[in-house]
């Protein structure tokens, strides 16, 4: 095959319901877990313990409850059947993400004090769209869950004139929706700028700074 070979990231997949992968043990680092619950929750954590009966995660759980966003920090014990996937993000990507976050070129950003739901479009539920309210502003700490259960964690978010979100300094965890091999199932990428068509987004939540104190 010509060109660069796709990197095998299967070792970064700690849990994957689609392929019954469960790597037992304790893992540290930057770990993202997507749950199968009604709130479509995501857990950000630096520590996860996996065994076949239960998964123990210490971190920040973000999701939705009706028309509002929720965020809790603590220890969560979750049975494996309630988890969609759990991945450890490449250190290099997290480092790049961090470096750019301290870029001072955009000093005037809006950091919300509490976590808020900016957009929601989930089948069978009421659509929430506050894009108009924040147009022209730069919002800090956006996260988005997409329809194929991929995730975007950005440093900044701007809504463009066609009402599509643009994520700045973001990393993307993409999970292929179609059948594929485990090696190709997940991809991580760092994206300095990422514009997304709003129709592919389940929700966008803006994290409040109270969570980081």
């Amino acid at each position: 095959m010509l060109g660069p070979q796709p990197r095998d990231l299967s070792e970064n997949i700690l849990f994957e319901s689609k392929y019954d992968i469960l790597r037992e043990g304790t893992y540290k680092g930057s770990i993202l877990t997507n749950l199968k619950d009604n709130g479509h929750s995501i857990i950000f954590s630096d520590n996860i313990e996996l065994d076949k009966d239960r998964i123990l995660i210490k971190g920040l759980k973000v999701g939705i409850n009706g028309d509002a966003a929720t965020s809790f920090d603590g220890k969560f014990t979750i049975p494996p059947k309630d988890i969609l996937y759990s991945v450890k993000i490449d250190d290099q990507i997290v480092k790049t993400f961090e470096q750019e976050r301290f870029n001072a070129s955009f000093p005037f950003m809006i950091s919300l004090l509490n976590t808020h739901l900016l957009f929601k479009n989930i089948a069978g539920e009421r659509i929430i769209n506050h894009f108009n309210f924040v147009k022209g502003e730069i919002l800090n700490h956006p996260i988005a869950l997409l329809y194929n259960n991929s995730m975007i964690v950005g440093d900044r978010l701007v809504i463009d004139n066609l009402e599509h979100p643009i994520f700045y300094d973001a990393f993307l965890v993409s999970r292929k929706a179609y059948d594929t091999s485990i090696q190709e199932l997940v991809e991580f990428s760092y994206e300095p700028i990422r514009r997304l068509n709003v129709k592919y987004i389940k929700y966008i939540i803006v994290l409040g700074v109270e969570m980081f104190k």
């Binding site: 950000f44 630096d46 961090e98 969570m211």
Partner: peptide, 14 residues
């Protein structure tokens, strides 16, 4: 310090 594995603290006082 990376809070929750991803975020830097914003707690200047601490």
């Amino acid at each position: 310090e990376r809070l929750y594995g991803f975020f830097r603290t914003q707690n200047i006082t601490k």
